[in-house]
Design a binder for these strands. Structure first.
Length: 271
DNA sequence: CAACGGACCTGCCTGC
DNA sequence: TGCAGGCAGGTCCGTT
């Protein structure tokens, strides 16, 4: 479910309830996530004060003086701040009780998500260390993308979805950014001019920023931590619109599998 | 190395 | 109605 805008929306939603609070207890109802939830997590996190809730790529980082809880929402994960008295839902796998009397619950039907603990600086964790630049940060520009794409024959769409190249661009926003930039999703990454690569970078930034502003995209089940949906879905121009007219030129939008993922594009506008 | 397919899971929808 | 099959927002890992 969540791409960068949904994770960032979640971060902004939960941070005010977490920052500055002390963890009173941690309960793991089902440790079978993508990797087993470490047995030491509950003991290590209990008693710690949450100093900051940060995001790196699609990872959420709950930082304390004793270590960092690394959370990933996978395809179907979500976080809710709730009253501990509220009955647990099916697929609520982890609960963190706070000294405010509230609790944070991780809900994840498909269990592709993760909850890990590290005492090292999180940037050095093996999962985070190899990640490419943040798309909305410094260090991500046309010159960079052109340089790392040089000589690559891989299609541009899976290329920008590779988190060693740039993080946070999932299937929805890859489709949308390529449409905005007028680039065909199958075009080889190494065969895009500097000018068009710059346009692609700007399109990625613009679509992610706009989606964050709208609270993310709710397709099926993504809900913000307050239970509200994100409103970016109505702004999607090609995603899940196969067979509809292109909003720019009225040609019929195509759907095809590229790199195993559903891809949507206008065969006339995108070259 | 780059590129690709498989794997991990549940839920939901479609079509027979 | 039941059941098989396909698909879903991610990404690691093993193989070519």
């Amino acid at each position: 479910m969540p791409e960068l805008p949904e994770v960032e929306t979640t971060r902004r939603g939960i941070a005010p309830s977490l920052e500055g609070r002390r963890v009173e207890a941690v309960r793991v109802f089902d440790p079978r996530l993508r990797w087993p939830v470490p047995a030491e997590l509950a003991g290590a996190l209990a008693g710690q004060r949450i100093e900051a809730v940060r995001r790196r790529a699609k990872y959420l980082l709950l930082e304390t003086a004793g270590g960092t809880l690394i959370l990933h929402l996978g395809m179907s994960g979500s976080l809710r701040v709730s009253d501990p008295e509220t009955p647990r839902r099916r697929h609520d796998h982890l609960e963190i009780r706070l000294d405010s009397g509230r609790c944070l619950r991780l809900h994840d039907p498909r269990r592709f998500g993760a909850a890990l603990w590290t005492r090292e600086p999180p940037a050095e964790h093996p999962l985070l260390a190899p990640l490419g630049p943040e798309p909305l940060g410094e260090g991500f520009d046309g010159a960079y993308l052109r340089r790392v794409g040089r000589g690559r024959r891989q299609a541009i769409k899976p290329f920008i979805m590779n988190n060693r190249i740039v993080v946070g661009v999932g299937n929805i926003y890859a489709n949308e950014a390529l449409f905005r930039a007028g680039i065909h999703p199958r075009r080889a990454a190494g065969r895009i001019s500097a000018r068009r690569m710059e346009a692609l970078v700007e399109a990625i930034r613009a679509v992610l920023a706009a989606a964050i502003e709208q609270g993310g995209t709710t397709l099926r089940d993504f809900l913000r931590e307050d239970g509200q949906p994100g409103y970016f879905r109505q702004r999607l121009e090609v995603y899940e619109r196969g067979g509809e007219p292109c909003p720019r030129c009225t040609a019929t939008i195509r759907q095809a599998l590229i790199g195993q993922r559903s891809s949507y594009y206008c065969p006339r506008c995108q070259r």
